[in-house]
């Protein structure tokens, strides 16, 4: 019996310490968030004025989701191209990609959205028109049609918002892709090339599949960030949830209802997405 006690005592001591440790490391913030979420959910669904706010604001949900998704997919394309450019030995592409990344990352997103939507897109349209004029004068009228036909009105503010977000996030994703590609050992490219694959084939079949898998969590995190930054397009009067909430608050003077509901809507989306990202990350790690 005494022997047993001697054995048990340190175990009990350890357990107490680990309990304390467990209490300390417990994600209290998450518990608090769930309580707040339940509370707010309760209020929003039972309190009439919150309910009214939610029903009004949810009209913007489609635009928020559509804008984010489309812009993100385009940003993946920009990012991949620019990321490949950043590691390219071709001086032109390398510098072009570097210029793009540095320019974008040095300017606040809000300013970029104004600039791209209100200066960049109109300039592009004018440029296309000018090309059309030139083609027309050169006597190739049938080719000039699509260039001269386009006007600034054809590009909606919503489309401009998507272009702005995509172009901006492309620069951030480029750095993720670059880091991912550079994390793959040199031997992989050499083995692929030694089998006769071209640089492009080796990139596509060997390097990128591994690189993208490595950066999947980072790409996911930037998607979550983009959900939040999509609220910035409200400055272009695009009717996303932020803009609709502003309209609601402005017309009813129910600021608290409008912005509490808006915040909870963003929080719900980002928390769910973050949990998905974390799950993917954990699964990837356990597969290694």
């Amino acid at each position: 019996m005494t022997e047993k006690r001697i054995v048990i005592e340190p175990v009990v001591g350890e357990e107490e310490a680990s309990w304390e440790e467990r209490l300390r490391s417990f994600p209290w913030w998450f518990l608090a968030m769930i309580f707040i979420a339940i509370g707010v959910f309760f209020v929003v669904s039972t309190n009439e004025s919150y309910n009214a706010a939610f029903n009004f604001i949810k009209a913007g949900l489609t635009i928020t989701i559509k804008t984010t998704l489309i812009a993100y997919v385009i940003a993946l394309g920009f990012g991949l191209l620019a990321g490949l450019g950043r590691i390219s030995k071709n001086v032109f592409f390398n510098n072009l990609a570097r210029l793009y990344v540095e320019l974008i990352r040095g300017i606040p997103i809000l300013v970029l959205i104004f600039f791209i939507a209100l200066v960049g897109v109109p300039s592009l349209v004018n440029g296309l028109n000018a090309i059309g004029e030139w083609l027309n004068n050169a006597g190739i009228a049938f080719l000039s049609k699509p260039f001269t036909a386009i006007t600034n009105q054809d590009v909606s503010m919503n489309a401009r918002a998507i272009i702005a977000l995509a172009f901006t996030y492309g620069a951030y994703l480029a750095e993720i892709f670059r880091a991912g590609i550079q994390s793959i050992g040199k031997g992989q490219m050499e083995a692929a090339r030694s089998l006769g694959m071209s640089y492009g084939q080796a990139m596509r079949h060997i390097i990128l599949p591994q690189a993208i898998r490595n950066v999947l969590p980072a790409l996911g995190n930037d998607f979550v960030a983009m959900v939040k930054d999509s609220s910035l397009v409200s400055v272009l009067a695009v009717r996303d949830i932020t803009q609709v909430a502003r309209l609601y608050a402005g017309s009813t003077f129910r600021f608290r209802e409008a912005y509490v509901t808006l915040a909870v809507m963003y929080l719900t989306m980002t928390v769910i997405l973050s949990l998905i990202v974390q799950t993917v990350e954990r699964r990837l790690r356990s597969n290694d």
Binding site: G187, E190, A191, A192, R193, S194, L195
Partner: peptide, 24 residues
């Protein structure tokens, strides 16, 4: 010339110290 090099490389097998298999 990269085209010729790729073609010639396909005719030359190389085995590396650290294998360099494609892990995916």
């Amino acid at each position: 010339n990269i085209k010729t090099i790729n073609a010639i490389r396909a005719e030359i097998g190389m085995v590396f110290q650290l294998f360099n298999l494609f892990p995916h």
